[in-house]
Design a protein around this nucleic acid. Structure first.
Lengths: 207, 207
DNA sequence: GTATGTATGAAACGATCGTTTAGCACAGGA
DNA sequence: TCCTGTGCTAAACGATCGTTTCATACATAC
């Protein structure tokens, strides 16, 4: 059921973390928002750090799974040929951007994920990046196939630029002006076109 | 003199903020690192928030001034014609990237500035963005001139993508593998080429 | 010499943090 | 009926936070 205490705590923590950051959000604020007792967090999750892990894990895993699924579909379409760069880019950024119109997970969590990429805390970075590493490697490999003219360190650098642009777009509340599907689609389209242009830009070293 | 207590506190705070974030850094850690008494922070700066403001302001103002100077030079070179897109992009990102090889300010502060763009705390965002707003407007205007085929909202969106990619490159310790000028130059060149490619990508709406 | 203002120090303040303890209500099985 | 385990709560714990107070050293001006 959805008014389970554990679920209410997760929802409240997710919202408050996204608004104010993790360090700045106290367990007392979370339990007050969730209508639960302060001790309920330690009872259900063991510690605040474990709660943070569950807040992220609950949504990150499906997100990364969708990224991988879309990537495999794009690679399958290419067969033995060169895979489509826009398809790879969209496989990477679309799951996150489209989740913004999900009224349940919604923008709240997307801002949280976007922020995780730049969060100061070592614990948070570890939580998120261990779940992200496989995805990152798979996409770097696909990008290298789609961009055979680029050497590997350039692909790595440009992949990081892509993460940065996407993460910032996710944290920026004005990036997706409206909650309608049209608005999100347009933001996604803009981001994909920008990233494709940047990824396939000439390096100045070739030829 | 450079072992002034006030300066030592600023240096220590800058380093610790960059490493662990602002919320997670206590005044006790700062004063211990600076070899000063705990009360010295409140004596010299009044409060922790005021200290944060001075840590940023000390370096941000020269950085933004250099951005504006470079931008004006690029616009002057163009005369009445279309200004050079790579020159505008480089005017924006070069001052920050090149500051990484400054042994004094150095990467410590650059990571701090990069993180400021995504920092959760409202106070920090306000401190940095009030100093950044004029720069952002000037560059958006210049980009619109250099990219006449794009409508204004597209320029705005792509400008934000540029900020995101740059901020992430600044926070990533591996973005600039080495501290040598060659390494920094190569990272800067990569970032500029990526951003130029993304900024002048086709929109799909034109024609 | 005396007064004044600045820089620093030790110690404590109240507040808030994450966590723990002890106990209560209540379900279901022996 | 008694027992056990689960969900939850009120209350307190020790630690740490930013800040303040009060005292002291010391330079400079009178």
């Amino acid at each position: 059921m959805s008014d389970d205490t554990k679920t209410r705590i997760l929802d409240a923590a997710e919202r408050l973390f996204a608004d104010s950051g993790i360090d700045a959000t106290s367990l007392r604020a979370i339990t007050a928002e969730a209508g639960a007792n302060l001790a309920a967090v330690n009872y259900h999750f063991g510690s605040k750090e474990a709660l943070v892990g569950e807040v992220y894990g609950r949504r990150i895993d499906p997100l990364n799974r969708e990224r991988i699924d879309r990537l495999h579909a794009a690679l399958r379409d290419a067969g033995d040929g060169v895979p489509s760069l826009p398809a790879i880019v969209e496989a990477f950024v679309a799951p996150a951007m489209l989740a913004m119109q999900d009224p349940d997970a919604g923008r709240t969590f997307i801002r949280l994920v976007g922020r995780a990429h730049t969060e100061a805390s070592t614990d948070v970075r570890r939580i998120v990046f261990t779940r992200f590493q496989d995805v990152a490697l798979a996409f770097q490999k696909a990008l290298a196939r789609a961009l055979p003219q680029l050497d590997r360190s350039t692909v790595q650098a440009r992949f990081k630029f892509m993460i940065g642009a996407m993460a910032y777009a996710m944290t920026d509340p004005t990036a997706c002006a409206g909650p309608t599907e049209r608005d999100v689609r347009r933001s996604l389209d803009r981001l994909v076109r920008f990233l494709v242009g940047g990824l396939e830009a000439p390096t100045g070293e070739e030829k």
